[in-house]
């Protein structure tokens, strides 16, 4: 199952490498990774989606190991928290003038936009959850997708963050129920 982590990291050279290297070192596969600035220039924010074959057990491991990196300021596993999740895709579709209307109406249904029109192609921009984007891609595919780029998922939890720095295993969080944990260990 895919888990989503938000990491606030120092905006310094090499930090992305440290994070990426950690996943390789601990043998996890990154499904998606998005990095960008935050409201504070010295802090970058990463949203990492990772496949966790052992569920919460793996998630704990990832969270705790990310937390150990000196340049990582905060880590949150938001997989089970109410949050807003978005991905952005640019999709170039091979269509001449005769089929543009079809793309246009599809775009409308998905609240997507056509952001570029050329003689025999258009670029569609769509934002939304994974599912929504996948849905649109499926419908555009028969028309002929020639190029596609996605930003990777970004996430934000709903409501006001309490600002408390949680540490895996200290504030207890999801491991309060330890018998459950015992079953998780492979």
């Amino acid at each position: 199952m895919n888990y989503t982590f938000i990491a606030l990291v120092e905006n310094k050279p090499g930090v992305l490498n440290r994070v990426a290297s950690l996943f390789r070192r601990r043998n996890f596969n990154i499904e998606s990774l998005a990095v960008g600035r935050t409201e504070k220039p010295e802090i970058s924010r990463m949203t990492v989606v990772v496949d966790c074959p052992n569920g919460d057990y793996d998630a704990h491991k990832i969270e705790a190991n990310l937390y150990k990196l000196v340049n990582v300021i905060d880590v949150q596993d938001v997989t089970h928290q109410p949050s807003v999740t978005r991905d952005l895709a640019l999709i170039k579709v091979m269509v001449g003038p005769e089929k543009r209307a079809e793309v246009n109406s599809l775009a409308e249904i998905f609240r997507a936009r056509i952001v570029d029109v050329a003689a025999d192609s258009v670029i569609v921009e769509i934002t939304g959850t994974e599912d929504k984007i996948e849905g649109m891609i499926e419908l555009l595919r028969p028309l002929g997708i020639v190029e596609m780029v996605r930003t990777g998922q970004v996430s934000m939890t709903r409501g006001v963050n309490d600002g408390v720095r949680r540490m895996p295993g200290v504030n207890g969080n999801r491991f309060e129920d330890l018998s459950e944990m015992a079953e998780m260990a492979p």
């Binding site: 704990h60 705790a64 491991f175 998780m184």
Partner: peptide, 14 residues
């Protein structure tokens, strides 16, 4: 080190 907790052996009280 929190990453050692539950790593190899799930424990009752970390």
């Amino acid at each position: 080190d929190p990453s050692e907790v539950h790593k190899n052996v799930a424990v009752d009280v970390p």
